[in-house]
Design a protein around this nucleic acid. Structure first.
Length: 925
RNA sequence: GGGCGAGUAGCUCAGUUGGUUAGAGCGCCUGCCUUACACGCAGGAUGUCGGGGGUUCGAGUCCCUCCUCGCCCA
């Protein structure tokens, strides 16, 4: 804890890495990041739970700017709720990341000149486990450096025994409900990873390829009549089992039922009719390759066509199944792209290649290795999604769950309405093995929660399905499995489920977010969270997504080392509008993070001023200060503090829906973190530092009761400013807060991190008036400063100012000294000496301010300035008056608007009169 | 092909049911080491709110259309 000694010793410069680490340790030691299931209201406690489940980074990840952004947002929200008195839980975790991790190990092996098959499955998995043990979860360590206030005691891992148990349970439950089935169909296949991919894992990119027009001779036709088909993948023609035309296409009606001769493969295939064919595309004739195209597969099913597989898993040509000798000997073993070239060449020679044209089309790529995905007929496990999607759709439609920004709700709904079954079996070695066993003897299929050693029917030997589950099959359970599911009475599950906010990037809306919602309803019959907050992507100045491989990344740890975690956090939060991308310059960290770094320094220096001037002895409590003791400046800053609390609260919004469902008016508001940050910054910098703190100079040093009032108010407003800023800048605020000279009686927490979040009060009229009265004082100061600047009066030179105020004479009399102090002038509340040359200004309330300047003043410049002002005012006044004379405006605009326009007109007229008089007197009309 | 988003100061972006003279940070210009802070202070310049049309008393905000860029889904 702070000793008296420490209070004096704020270094002149804030050095983040000297302090941040130590503070983090102390937070952890004090256990303030640990949520207690007994404290949750759902478990007999007295606090509302507030829970965020961290999107688990891949076990192999290291911290990059995307994580920095994602986790800063989560930490800001969780710290806010913790201070607000909730039982706040931020649960961290990591994902075993099936394909991604396996690819890394395979790459390592490749460098050693080996493949996974050289090791065999068991050794491969062991090697992966030891790799993960060494490097895995490094990112969770790194998160501490940016201040992440996770409950580390609950750190989860998708491949842990507990979560594995949940995965099996989920599989078995869905299987028992008839929602998991084994399907024989065309799936996306990665020839490099040698696994199937789900629809979401096969990502498409626009590419310019070629469209080949190929003639298939018509069997039994006269001459060399043929049908021309167009395809982008000629190599798949070896798997063609038909050509199809639209049933209503007059050009081809007569040919339906006849056959064509498939070139190269030399087999006859029928001409069929199917509505799937678009007569307008290409020639209106489509080749049907059921085993290598998902649309063709559907056609094949409808027409009960054979489905020859003509490509091996690794993408080379081969007569795999039902293909006879369709692939000629010279093409067997040839890679698909090489085969394409050769087939095209051969067709050209035989005159069957009619045309080749450039073609823009979408090509799917493996989301992990970017290899072109091959559609391939295969046996896979699928989850029937439509029944699961129903409650997930309803939840967003009825406001149980909201998605921010709002526009993503439409994307979510559109996807769920057209949802397709989920291919969950992957031909990998790293992941949860599918809990299905097959009896070698009676062929029985056994789905089980526990390992099976013998057939429960015939006692025969069994073998487990070779495949593993899609990584997302464990991730989608994360909100429930990390809290103890399938044990529905587990204390954490009872206390913390449903959780509150889910904060992630839009890229995984389908992969993860929507599936978690489905799992929540499927297994807990309740939504996993009520708010999905989708933030933007971190990009460089060319708007290219930052990534290590592109070399345009920023290492958050570098930023932390150079500028501190708080600078990083503030910059990220303040610079990011709701859902907008965050653009940073990897070439210029100095510039990118200046906003946060500068603001941290500002806070530090306010702290230094405060400790040097207010000192270390306890201050009076603001609660016991009497109204009469407070100066106008005190009232103003307290009023501004209150207004700022409201602004911050308004920007943050409601933490949870009122009665389980978001009401329309609150649904899309809140979590405007940049607005919250800006409101707090404005208060600290523009109000406290620029004005209030300056007014205390001279007061505090003077001793006596007013000195005590100033000490108390300054300490109080800084205390509360630090509270407001703590979620964004936890380290520096905690450091400073620890040293504040709190009132003796203050019942204060040990840490700012758990100090109560400020509460605003409805401002009484007097408070609002104080603010506007002090604003006038500030305006007078600004007016003198402006004159100083206009006439280049050296700052050191004191000047004299005269204020004549018909409306607010007393106010200026009372604050003449303060105005003088702030503007470095001697202020007289009286008319200026008539004959002297002077600079002039007219304030908003019509008060006139005159600064005699002796020989310095340039009369024509002064006249020009005043005339300019007058002219501008008159233009504005004219349009305002016109509006107020407009019948339409008066009758249709709300009364309040008309009223305020009238008031404004009065004010402007007053000011115009003053200005006009001034111009007349000074410039002779 | 379908859907969505963006285009506001030199740069990055705010601008919540249409209602003051459109804002912030960074950058820029001028003057200042005014004993918390030059990572600062004071003052200042800069916008036909992408183009065009419309609705309205009133449009950066709503509607239509066009242009440019980006994202998602087939």
């Amino acid at each position: 804890m702070s000793t008296t000694q420490e209070l004096h010793d704020l270094p002149a410069q804030y050095v983040p890495d000297q302090t941040e680490r130590a503070i983090y340790e102390r937070w952890v030691e004090a256990g303030i990041f640990s949520a207690g299931e007994k404290r949750s209201k759902r478990n007999g406690g007295d606090r509302d739970p507030f829970v965020i489940i961290m999107p688990p980074p891949n076990v192999t990840s290291v911290l990059h700017m995307g994580h920095g952004l994602n986790n800063t947002v989560q930490d800001v929200i969780i710290r806010w709720r913790r201070m607000a008195g909730d039982d706040a839980l931020w649960l961290p975790g990591i994902d075993h990341a099936g394909i991604a991790t396996q690819n890394i190990i395979e790459r390592q092996l490749a460098e050693e000149g080996k493949t996974k098959f050289d090791l065999g499955r068991q050794a491969f998995v062991e090697r992966t486990i030891s790799f993960v043990e060494q490097t895995g979860g490094e990112i969770l360590q790194q998160l501490r450096a940016i201040g992440a206030s996770c409950d580390w005691n609950r750190t989860a891992y998708t491949l842990s025994p507990e979560l594995s148990r949940a995965v099996r349970e989920a599989f078995v439950q869905l299987y028992d409900r008839g929602l998991i089935y084994r399907g024989h169909r065309v799936i996306h296949w990665c020839p490099r990873c040698l696994t199937s991919l789900s629809d979401e894992e096969a990502q498409h990119g626009e590419e310019t390829g070629k469209l080949y027009h190929i003639a298939y001779p018509i069997v039994g036709a006269k001459g060399n009549a043929s049908l021309t088909v167009a395809t982008t993948r000629p190599e798949t023609m070896l798997g063609d089992v038909a050509v199809a035309v639209h049933p209503d296409d007059e050009r081809y009606k007569k040919l339906i039922g006849k056959s064509v001769l498939l070139p190269i493969a030399n087999v006859e295939i029928p001409i069929i009719a199917d509505e799937y064919v678009d007569p307008a595309f290409g020639t209106g004739v489509v080749k049907i390759t059921p085993a290598h195209d998902s649309n063709d597969f559907e056609v094949g099913m409808r027409h009960k066509l054979p489905m020859p597989v003509i490509m091996a898993p690794d993408g080379t040509m081969e007569n795999v199944a039902d293909a006879d000798s369709r692939v000629p000997a010279e093409l067997v073993g040839v890679d698909r792209f090489e085969a394409r070239e050769r087939i095209v060449e051969s067709l050209e020679k035989s005159g069957l290649l009619k045309k080749v044209e450039p073609h823009q089309h979408a090509v799917r790529h493996c989301y992990r290795c970017d290899t072109v995905v091959e559609p391939r007929l295969s046996d896979q496990w699928f989850v029937k999604m439509e029944p699961l999607a129903k409650p997930a759709l309803k939840a967003v439609r009825d406001g149980t769950i909201r998605i921010l920004p709002e526009r993503w709700e439409a994307v979510y709904i559109n996807w769920l309405e057209n949802i397709r079954d989920w291919n969950i079996s992957h031909q990998l070695w790293w992941g949860h093995r599918i809990p299905v066993w097959y009896c070698e003897k009676c062929d029985r299929q056994i789905v089980s929660r526990t390992d099976v050693t013998a057939c429960d029917k015939c006692g025969g030997p069994v073998r487990q399905d070779e495949d593993v589950l899609d990584t997302w099959f464990s991730s989608w359970l994360f909100p429930i499995s990390t809290l103890g599911w399938p044990d529905k009475s587990a204390a954490p599950l009872v206390a913390f489920y449903p959780t509150d906010d889910l904060i992630t990037a839009p890229e995984i809306l389908f992969f993860w977010v929507s599936r978690m919602i489905m799992a929540g309803y499927a297994f807990m019959d309740a939504q996993p969270f009520h708010t999905v907050y989708l933030h933007g992507t971190v990009r460089d100045t060319h708007h290219v997504k930052m990534s290590k491989s592109l070399g345009n990344g920023i290492d958050p740890l570098d930023v932390v080392a150079s500028y501190g975690a708080d600078a990083l956090r503030y910059t990220v939060i303040a610079g990011m509008g709701m859902g907008a991308d965050l653009v940073l310059d990897p070439q210029d960290l100095e510039r990118s993070f200046a906003p946060g770094r500068n603001f941290a320094t500002k806070l530090w220096n306010i702290g230094r001023f405060l400790l040097a001037n207010v000192g270390t002895s306890p201050v009076r409590s603001v609660d016991e200060l009497l109204d009469g003791e407070l100066t106008l400046a005190d009232q103003w800053i307290l009023g501004r503090l209150n207004a700022t609390i409201f602004e911050c609260d308004a920007a943050l919004g409601r933490p949870r829906p009122t009665k389980g469902k978001w009401r329309p008016e609150e649904r899309y508001s809140g979590l405007r973190l940049s607005e919250y940050a800006e409101a707090a910054r404005r208060f600290v910098w523009n109000d406290v530092a620029d004005w209030y703190l300056e007014t205390t100079k001279g007061r505090i040093g003077a001793g006596g009761s007013d000195s005590e009032v100033a000490r108390a108010v300054l300490t109080h407003v800084f205390d509360y400013a630090l509270r407001l800023l703590h979620p964004i800048m936890p380290f520096i605020t905690e450091t400073l807060w620890q040293r504040l000279p709190f009132p003796v009686a203050a019942d204060r927490c040990e840490f700012l991190a758990i100090a109560p979040w400020p509460l605003g009060h409805l401002p009484p009229k007097s408070e609002i008036e104080s603010i506007s009265r002090f604003d006038l004082v500030r305006e007078a100061v600004s007016a003198i400063r402006q004159i100083r600047s206009d006439y280049a009066i050296p700052p050191g030179k004191s000047i004299e100012a005269f204020v004549k105020s018909p409306a607010n004479g007393q106010l200026f009399t009372d604050h003449a000294r303060l105005i003088g102090q702030l503007a470095r002038a001697v202020v007289n509340i009286s008319a200026a000496p008539a004959d002297s040359a002077a600079a002039h200004s007219v304030l908003a309330d019509g008060s006139e301010l005159v600064v005699p300047l002796g020989g310095v003043v340039d009369l024509s410049k002064e006249c020009g300035k005043l005339r300019g002002e007058l002219e501008q005012l008159e233009t504005q006044l004219e349009s305002l008056s016109k509006r107020l004379r407009n019948e339409g405006f008066l009758s249709r605009a709300p009364a309040a608007v008309v009223e305020s326009e009238r008031e404004k007109e009065d004010e402007w007229i007053k000011r115009r009169e003053q200005l006009a008089e001034k111009v007349k007197a000074l410039c002779g009309g």
